[in-house]
Each structure stands twice: as structure tokens, then as C-alpha cells.
Write a protein that binds this DNA or RNA. Structure first.
Lengths: 205, 205, 205, 205
DNA sequence: AATGAATGAGGTTTCATTCAT
DNA sequence: TATGAATGAAACCTCATTCAT
């Protein structure tokens, strides 16, 4: 029975210099991961790409997977921030408009980091639950839940809310990712329309 | 430009003993893969699990990936065979019935090999395209295409057939897999109903 | 068409410690090669003989053959340096004297590294052409060529210069090596005399 | 302290069938050695080339090196037989003529098996003394010794017979081999002439 | 704090040889 | 006697991690 390996950064960077070094490590790790995949991202290569010695990595992270987890967290944070901004900026619109905008934004954002996304989806061995991304998913789910409840009478009355929520979020999430990674010959405009149709037709009365 | 490494079995077993050994290797590899993932499935561990010596693996497979590919092929073949049988047995029914039965069968089959499925989904893309599973996907897609074309007047007239097909097959495929792997608190009956609703409502007029 | 594997040292040692380690690796490799031959010189044995870990070898050399090549290069460099010094120091003498001194020096030098020489002669051609030694051979050939041309009238007039050069250098080279490796019951003084006689009588008018 | 490994054929082939099998093994081993080198000549490949199962090799030879030794012996025997025939057929001629013919024959014979010769010289780790070839060398040496003694007055009187013999045989042997393997741009006729000149000038008064 | 040398377990693969049939 | 399946030691090499400076 072994302890689960420590995945938290080893020291909280207080000083400015340290924080910059952590930043460089994460940026380098992101680059190396995107370009060479999980197996190709050796600690030595990450250190080299970050312009520091391999030994120094271990000043900031207890082991390799902690670095990867930090990269994933950064990715999730960025996504959450930007989707959050999007939500805020269209919250006032009618829900069809807001939803469509959100779909569009999500796909655009994923496209920006398609290389890293591919590695995350295809190569990263599951390193325990991917907390930050799960949190984002929950946040979006809650948002949809609110819409569902607020507009209850616009929808099928036999709706099992939890089942529907799971199906909706997974459908939208998985399809967005697949779309970005597989690049089927469907223009993004059309894709967003279809996704919206899929969702709306599924839940409306 | 180098030859891609040989992935085909090294020797077609003639003797009964050989056939049994190959069986044991594949069974052991399936077990080890399911339990420890791709990286944890070292040739040593597979040999040990199969109760044979390390060197014997290489009597039958040219390298580790060839073993993994054989395991996947077996999985895909099994799936294709049983889905094929399912299709045949309900082809005569109305398409709503046949479709629902197919969804139900697919989820049941995936559930049977959930552990291996998890590895396939989460770790195997590193091996490049997984031909047999892609072929199965194409086969199912073709089936749906025929239904769409035969029943054109029952559906929305603005349907972009190719886009719709891509979305439908990916939705059903990804959601079935996610359902089996994440085990959300939705009974299978309900899940099948919802999936059917999702699909039918998306395409009908 | 694949790249030839990299044979150059992996890291130019900066620190004193590194330099010492490389020295120890090369010394150990020389020893192991001399005693156990190419096939017997496993990387593990070399590392053990050097008193370092297996992995450390690969900090400095990309693969086993690079180590062997480095050993050979060192041998050839040493030989070239010392023969060069010999040449310089007797260049002023009449050519018979200088030639005899060169022969004598060459045999002495080979005798010093007889064990390694045996491995080079008997097992190393597998590594492909041994550049540094070939360069030394060319250098000596050029030297002889100059003597031949300068003293043309002292020699047979039907001399085919290129054929003669090939025969002379190979004769002297092969016989010196054979003498050192087989240790026939001929004193070195005598051997040098006979070699000189062989050469002189062959080319003189 | 281990016994030197057994190098003699395991059973003396009495029956015709066995003898034929041994022949096939040796022919196959010669071919594989010539084409793929010592390291590439695995027992499996030799067995396959001989059209028998790998296990059967060990009915006839105790280990791999015994096979290689047998190949070398066959090569030496063949060379001895044919040089012997050459000697017999020109024994009656004056020695200059006979000697030249012998040189010519030797180079021709080596050229016929140049591929195998290259492997022997460059790759075969020394498997104990190469008895048969040594015997051939001794035989030729004896021949030359007789000539030297019989024609004593035609030669330098300060001749150290043993030293001279060693030098002569090695010179001729090594140069012939080098000539065949390196293919310098010297026609064989010329080469034979030069070799003869080298020898004759060396020993004559 | 930083460096980079050193470690050593573990990975995949080969192949001479043995053994059950 | 012949087969070919099975063996297992040993080869080369990588890389996350530790340690001396």
C-alpha cells in the first residue's frame, strides 16, 4: 500500500523570480508535450526547453507527473476564464443566442490549443481525476441546469433533469473535441448550428 | 522514409500447442492491458501473466505493439461479429425498433469489456489509427446512411447528409463509450431511450 | 535511407569531473576490448570496469560503437603523434637511415599496444572503415611517394609508382602488424633489417 | 576453469543421408556467412537456408562455432587441394615459372571465394587456432624452404633461412589477401609480376 | 538555489540452446 | 531422427530521480 504520489507544487513560489521560473517550466512543458507527446516529453527535454538544468525541475515540482498535471490545470484554468468571460458578456441575451455563442466560443477556444488538446485526449495516461477540468464541466452543467429549470415550461415535461444534463454536457463536450481533433469537412458555422439543433430539439417540448 | 514496423503476427501457428500459446498470450495481454494500461503492460509482465517465458512472445509476435494490435483486433472482431448478428436479427423490424435494439446491444457489448475499452479510448490512440474499429464505425455509418436515404421524407429536408451522419455516429459512439466508462447514475434502459430520443428528434422533420 | 547512427561523443565535458569520467570510460573500454574482444566488451562490463554505472556511459557516448570508435581514435592519434615526432626528428638524415628508424619506431609503437592492435586487426573491420588509421596510412604513403619521386634515378625505371606504393605500404604495414601479433622468433633488429632489405631491394635499380 | 568447447562434429556421418545433410548445412552456412556476416549468421537462419529445422543442427554439430569451424576447414581444404594440384602440375618447371604460377593460382583461388574470405579475415572472431589453414601455410613454407635450400648458391649468403621464410610466406599471403579484398587498381598480371619481383629481389644474391 | 553528473531499475529484443512430441 | 516450441540469459539503451558541489 503506497501513498499516492504527491502532485502539488513543492514550494509555493513567493518570490517573483521563482514564479517566473515556474512559468517557464510550464510553458516549456506545454510546448514539448504538444510537439513530442507524452512519451517524448522527458524531464531532460522539458528542462532544456525551459533553459534550466534538469535538477532544477525538482526544486519546483516533486516529479514529472506533477508538471503534467500543472500543465493540464493551466489549460483548464485558461479555458474556464475565457468561457467565463464569454458567459458574462452574453448572459443578458436570450438563451438561444447565449447558448449558441457559448458553443461557438468553446469550439474556437479548443481550436486554439488543438495540439495540446490532442495530447490530453489521446496520450496522457489518466493521472487521477482531472480536477480542474471536471470543475469547469460542473460549472457549465450548473449553468445549463439553471436554464432548464428557469424555462421548464418550454421543454418536454417528461425530462429527467439529471440524465438530460449528463447527456447534454457530454454530447456537447465530446462532439466539440472530436470536431476539433478530427476536422471533419463541416464548416464551424454549420457545426455550431447542428450542435444547437441537436440540443434544442432534444429538450424542447 | 522507413518501413513502418511490422505489426503482423510472426508465425502462423500450425500445431495445436502453438495455437494454445497464442491464445494464452492474447488473454494475458488483454488482462494486463486492462489492469495496468499501455505503459504498465511490459512484455515481461505479459509473459509472466501468460505463464511463458519472455522469449516465447517473440516466437509469435515481432514486437510489443504487434501484441497490443492483436488484442485490439480481437476486441474489434468480436464487437463487429456480435453487432452484425444483432443487425441481422432485427433487420426486418421497423427502423425505430431496430435502431433501439442496436443501441442497446452496443452498450451491453461495451459494458462487457469496459476495462479494455477504457484503455483503448484513453491510451491507445498513440498506436495510430485503429483500423478494425474504424472499419466497424464505417459499416455502421453506412447502415445509417441507407436508412436516412430510404426514409428521406420522414426527416428534415434541410439535412446535410454527410454532416448529419458524422454528428450522429460520433454522438452515439462517444456517448455510449462515456456512459460505459463513467457510469453516470442513469439506468441503461433510460440511457437507450434518451439516446434514441436524441437521435430521432435531431433528424425528424 | 536512414541516417548513419551518430558516433560522435554526446557531450563535451566541461567540468573536471566529467573529463576524468570520460578518461576512465576510455581506459576501461580499452582494457575490456583488449582482454575480451569486441563481442565480449558489453556496455555493462565496460561500465563495471570503469567503476561507474551503466547509465553514465550514455551521458558521454550515444551508443556502444561510439565508445569503441573513441578508443580507436585515441589509439590512432597516439600512433600518429609519435610517428610524426619520429619523422620530424630524423627527416634530416639520409633516407635509408630515416626509413630504418621509422620502421623501428613503428614496430615498437605497435608492440606497446599489441593487445588492442589484435582486436583492431581481427575484429574491428565490422565497424566500417577506420578513418583515423586510414588517414595515418595515407600520410605515410605520401611521405614515401615524395621519397620515390625525389630519388627517382636511384630506382628501377620501370616502376609503376602507384602500384609500387600500394605494395610497399601494405607490405610494411601488414608485416609489422603480423610480426607484433604472431611474435615469430625473429629479433626486432633483424626484423627491421629484413623489412628494410625487402623494400630497398624491391625498388632499387 | 571451463573446458574448451567441443568443436568436433558430434557424430561421424556414416550413412549417406547424414552426410548429405551435413553438406547442406555447411553449404548453407557458407552462403549465410558470406552474405550476412558472422553476427548475421544466426543458427535459425542457417537452418532455414539449409531447409531443416533449427533443432536438427544440433544433431550434427555441438554448437554454432563448430559449424563455423567446419566451414573454415572446408574452405582451407578446398584451397589446399587446388593449390596442391597446381603445385604438382608445375613442379617440373624451373622454379621461377613454378613460383609465378603458384602466385597466380593463389590469387585466383582467393578471388573465387572473396566474400567468404572477407568474412574470415574481417569478422570471424578467432575460434582457437585455425588449424587447417595453418597446416596449408606450413606446407607452402616447407615447399619454399626446399627451393631455398636446393638453390642456395643463387641467393644471398647471409640469409637467415627461418626469418626469410616467415617474411616471404607472410608477405605473399597477406598481400594476396589484401589485394583480393581491397581491389587496388592493379591488374592481376601486374600484381603477380610485382609480387614475384618483390620475392626474387629479396632473396637473390 | 542551481547545476549537471551519476544512478540503476526497468524496458524491449535476440539468439544459442534444450526439450517434449 | 526430426521437429519446432520453449527457454532464459544477456545485450543495448532510456529516463525519472538523487546527490555532490
Amino acid at each position: 500500500m503506497t501513498h499516492p504520489p504527491d502532485m502539488s507544487p513543492r514550494r509555493t513560489p513567493r518570490q517573483e523570480r521563482s514564479r517566473r521560473t515556474v512559468e517557464r517550466i510550464l510553458a516549456a512543458a506545454t510546448r514539448v508535450l504538444s510537439e513530442r507527446g507524452y512519451d517524448g516529453a522527458s524531464t531532460n527535454r522539458i528542462a532544456e526547453a525551459a533553459g534550466i538544468s534538469n535538477g532544477s525541475l525538482y526544486q519546483y515540482f516533486p516529479n514529472k507527473d506533477a508538471i503534467v498535471v500543472a500543465v493540464l490545470d493551466r489549460f483548464a484554468d485558461r479555458l474556464a476564464d475565457r468561457l467565463g468571460a464569454q458567459i458574462e458578456s452574453t448572459m443578458a441575451e436570450p438563451w438561444q443566442v447565449a447558448g449558441r455563442a457559448l458553443l461557438d466560443a468553446q469550439i474556437r477556444l479548443l481550436e486554439e490549443d488543438a495540439d495540446l488538446l490532442r495530447i490530453i485526449v489521446e496520450q496522457i495516461p489518466r493521472l487521477g481525476p482531472f480536477d480542474k477540468l471536471a470543475a469547469l464541466q460542473r460549472r457549465l452543467t450548473d449553468l445549463v441546469r439553471v436554464y432548464l429549470l428557469l424555462n421548464r415550461d418550454a421543454f418536454r415535461e417528461d425530462l429527467d433533469v439529471d440524465a438530460t444534463l449528463w447527456i447534454l454536457t457530454e454530447t456537447v463536450g465530446q462532439l466539440s473535441i472530436k470536431y476539433v481533433l478530427d476536422r471533419p469537412p463541416i464548416p464551424r458555422e454549420r457545426m455550431v448550428d447542428e450542435l444547437a439543433a441537436l440540443v434544442v430539439r432534444y429538450i424542447r417540448a
